[in-house]
Design a protein around this nucleic acid. Structure first.
Length: 415
RNA sequence: GGAGAGGUGGCAGAGUGGUUGAAUGCGGCACCCUGCUAAGGUGUUAUUCCGUUUAUUCGGGAUCGAGGGUUCGAAUCCCUCCCUCUCCGCCA
């Protein structure tokens, strides 16, 4: 959520910045400011009437005044209703506006994304490489068929060494984060209520992409970012307690309605996957340094596995709406001849904090919104296939990355 | 799921229809005093919106879990919902 006052005072700058990420035809700040004018007009009127009423409500009024006040009360009620609907309308259009992109974020969509770092190189095979679905099936790591039988397409079951590899990855991630003790480990609930999903910015936009427990009005989290962002919602954080750094494990659930393409079968895009998420609540002046830290940690995690990946700075139009800047880590999947996101490092500035009303008392004694950042650290569902495909051998076996060997008690996955 | 109790300022805790944004205590902050200083005194101490001013200020509105209602007037009465606690039931 952007600050209406800021838009009021900086209409041109806001407009220019937003045009980097959305189409002119979808942007009408004049309409928003007009709604704001209407809102404030009503406030002035209704406040005047209420002041009048309050004058007489301090003591017992006489019969004549009571009659007059009754009329006044009715007028107030009407104006209050007008005000409520004016505010609701304004909020709706305001909430639909995306965040203002950071200065160094270029305009345009996906086509303007830029690789800013490459680690390793594309694997050269002197044999016909398999895709990860065949590898996982042949090695007995993943059972797609029985998972589909139990739960439907888009689910899979980790089996034997497959389950151990998944577990090893999570342990590797967690051990890495444990070496930074200022980060606290969290295991949040995996279901959340509508209000929380709204605050995290996933409602109303992603309503159809979430799984719902209709009867209980709860949805399954699609990323623990939804939970971590809400963790301090409505709170006033002590300045000296900032930054607050967390990493959380959660299983994530996504309907991925209509998202399937044949090349994305297997584990690339599923209804359920595991992820460790990093999250920070910071002082405004410190959020870009925090961003660099999160990016560094994400990169180290992928590099530790020895996987070839690119660091990609997203153009404004490709960042999700709440984010001022996003850098993706994309790992090489040989069979797809493409790179798939394993981590997304983002700074929301005060956009999420405003929505969730998360503030701190600053040195000037004013309450201000803090900044929120998140980054995967990491999602296993893209790393797992990358390991299988990048590390496969001519005989169909797969070398286990060195850092995972101690969790698995072996160095190779074979039949 | 049933029955009961409760949700008030940073915390504890008064307040059951009218100068109550809210007593009192604790905590915080500022100043003062004091040669027994981990003491004493005085003052101050919520958020947010609108208007005005824009270094500052001033005027007004709203907020006692949330939303609605009754009333000239609601922290206080009524309804719905959420949450906490106690007891009972259920518990793959």
């Amino acid at each position: 959520m952007l600050d209406i006052k800021y838009i009021r005072d900086n209409q041109n700058e806001v407009e220019q910045a937003l045009l980097k990420r959305i189409d002119k035809k979808n942007l009408d700040l004049n309409k928003i400011l007009k709604l704001d004018d209407q809102r404030r007009e009503i406030i002035v009127k209704v406040d005047e009437l209420k002041a009048e009423r309050n004058k007489f409500s301090k003591t017992k009024p006489d019969a004549k005044t009571i009659k007059a006040m009754k009329k006044l009360g009715e007028d107030i009620k009407v104006l209050d209703r007008d005000l409520n609907s004016a505010e609701a309308t304004l909020n709706e259009v305001l909430a639909a506006l995306p965040n203002i992109p950071a200065d160094d974020v270029v305009a345009g969509g996906k086509e303007n994304n830029k690789i800013i770092k490459t680690f390793g190189e594309q694997t050269k095979f002197d044999f016909e490489p398999k895709n990860h679905v065949d590898l996982a099936t042949d090695l007995g790591l993943i059972d797609y068929e029985r998972a589909a039988k139990m739960s439907g397409a888009g689910f899979w079951t980790y089996v034997g060494d497959g389950a151990l590899l998944e577990w090893a990855l999570l342990n590797y991630f967690i051990d890495f984060h444990r070496s930074h003790p200022e980060y606290r480990f969290m295991i949040p609930p995996y279901m959340l209520n509508e209000n929380s999903a709204y605050i995290s910015g996933h409602l109303p936009k992603f309503k159809d992409d979430l799984f719902w427990a209709e009867k209980d009005k709860l949805c399954f989290n699609a990323t623990s970012e939804m939970m971590l962002g809400n963790y301090h919602a409505g709170e006033m954080i002590n300045r000296k307690d900032l930054p607050l750094k967390y990493y959380a494990f959660s299983t994530c659930f996504r309907r991925e309605a209509g998202a399937y393409r044949t090349e994305e079968r297997g584990m690339i895009r599923g209804h359920q996957f595991n992820k460790i998420e990093m999250f920070q609540f910071t002082l405004p002046e410190e959020s870009w340094a925090a961003f660099d830290e999160l990016l560094d940690y994400g990169e180290k995690l992928v590099e530790g596995l020895g996987l070839h990946y690119n660091t990609v700075q997203l153009a404004a139009g490709d960042c999700s709406a709440a984010m001022a800047k996003t850098i993706d880590l994309e790992v090489w999947i040989p069979s797809m001849k493409g790179y798939k996101e394993v981590s997304s490092v983002s700074n929301a500035l005060d956009y999420q904090a405003r929505r969730g009303n998360i503030r701190f008392k600053d040195v000037d004694n004013k309450n201000k919104f803090l900044h929120t950042l998140n980054a995967s650290g990491l999602a296993t569902s893209r790393v797992f296939p990358a390991i299988l495909e990048q590390n496969q051998q001519a005989d169909g076996s797969v070398l286990i990355p060195k850092v995972l060997q101690k969790y698995m008690g072996k160095k190779v996955l074979k039949k």
